[in-house]
């Protein structure tokens, strides 16, 4: 079942009079439950593609269709609501709101969804246990290690049970051991809960863990390989 469709998508950034084509005529289809990595050298358009898939940005040309929502005609409020209901984001670093505790950060989307406090607490403490960060609920981000912070970010992305979690180089700031653990965790969540993961990376060890690798070069699709076990 197809979840996300990019149809001939182009994105051109403008810097003054200069036009920077970040993505050119990209067409992709993502299905429910996939575990996909966007690979490619720096500047190849990975972040741009994730932002488009995540409804954070609109394409210059072409269509991004998620479920039955066509992004072109949506207002920024509609986009915000759509992100809230369907999409989880994990960024490379500094993902968390520094004035909120780990648990409050993780509860944040649920709070925006007006989920009652009790249910929020329950869900988040369950997730913290699954992610191996139970006991850190009351800590501020500044008092957490990079790996712990990323786990809290995953908990936040997972808490609202979105259809897809987008992660832009989630392991780039972590040492290789922690990075591997985190990746393993995401794969497990993908297996057990069926959550779709799309993340970007240029680390070959990370890329080798994915079942589908989409390779971008200069904003073009260079390869789309699915590894069938």
């Amino acid at each position: 079942m197809s979840l996300i469709k990019l149809k001939n998508v182009s994105k051109i950034y403008r810097l003054g009079s200069q036009k920077i084509p970040a993505l050119t005529d990209l067409s992709l289809v993502f299905d429910v439950g996939e575990f996909v990595v966007l690979a490619g050298p720096s500047g190849s358009g990975k972040t741009t593609a994730l932002n488009l898939i995540g409804c954070l940005d609109r394409p210059t040309a072409g269509q991004v269709i998620i479920g039955d929502l066509d992004l072109q005609s949506a207002s920024s409020r509609q986009l915000a609501d759509f992100r809230l209901q369907h999409i989880g984001f994990i960024f490379q670093s500094y993902n968390l709101i520094p004035v909120l505790t780990a648990a409050e950060n993780a509860e944040f989307t649920l709070m925006l969804q007006k989920v009652p406090k009790q249910i929020r607490r329950q869900r988040v403490s369950k997730l913290f246990a699954e992610l191996g960060i139970d006991g850190l609920e009351g800590r501020r981000p500044a008092d957490l290690s990079g790996g712990q912070q990323q786990r809290v970010a995953i908990a936040r992305a997972m808490a609202a049970e979105p259809h897809v979690i987008l992660a832009d180089e989630p392991t780039a700031n972590l040492d290789s051991h922690t990075a591997e653990e985190l990746l393993e965790l995401m794969r497990r969540l993908n297996r057990e809960k069926g959550t779709t993961f799309i993340f970007s990376s240029h680390d070959d060890r990370v890329i080798s863990q994915a079942r589908r690798v989409i390779r971008l070069e200069d904003g073009h699709l260079a390869a789309d390989i699915t590894i069938t076990a």
Binding site: L56, R77, A80, L84, Q85, F89, F91, I97, P98, F108
Partner: peptide, 16 residues
């Protein structure tokens, strides 16, 4: 700025 970006990515509305 970045914090607001993260809040927006989480789905916080501009009015909020």
């Amino acid at each position: 700025t970045r914090e607001f970006g993260i809040l927006m990515a989480q789905g916080m509305r501009p009015w909020t």
